[in-house]
């Protein structure tokens, strides 16, 4: 692996000048570069908003919202979901829909338990615990 990357590094150095230019000649760098700039901009925005006390306890949600926008950009432009077959889009969607099922029904338990939040969890008894060394693999 490292040998590979050294080679890659060497190759990158050799071609820095003229060959690099030739390699990219006529290769359309757009829209990828524009999308990249947008991603970096959004990341910077996310960082700044996370550091400023603007949204209080909702600040993580704001960061995740920005992450979702960035993810959408990656999906559309880097992973070409727009040009993909319908069934490809469906399979990607299925992952997200099923994630919602997992979250939703799991929360249906946690959000409706009796008593104050988190009070249902008690430490287990110390009896019968197996020490680190005694545990089988």
């Amino acid at each position: 692996m490292s040998a590979q990357s050294e080679k890659a590094g060497a190759a990158a150095k050799d071609t820095m000048s003229a060959r690099a230019k030739r390699a990219f000649e006529g290769l359309d760098l757009f829209p990828e570069v524009t999308v990249f700039a947008a991603l970096v901009g959004l990341a910077a925005l996310s960082l700044i908003l996370a550091l400023l006390p603007l949204f209080g306890s909702l600040s993580l949600l704001v960061s995740l919202l920005i992450a979702a926008v960035m993810a959408a950009l990656v999906l559309i432009f880097f992973m070409h979901m727009r040009r993909a077959m319908t069934v490809v889009v469906l399979s990607g969607m299925a992952g997200i829909v099923w994630l919602t099922i997992l979250f939703g029904l799991t929360l249906s338990d946690y959000l409706t338990r009796a008593g104050p939040f988190g009070s249902s969890i008690e430490p287990p008894p110390a009896v019968g615990r197996v020490g680190e060394g005694e545990r089988g693999l």
Binding site: W98, I101, L105, S108, D109, Y110, L111, T112, R113, A114, S120
Partner: peptide, 22 residues
Amino acid sequence: GFFVWGHHMFTSGQSMYASLTF
């Protein structure tokens, strides 16, 4: 089949409302 898993957990301490839903 993905919406019913909680019926294995009726006696686990899971919320009663979740149990009824499942």
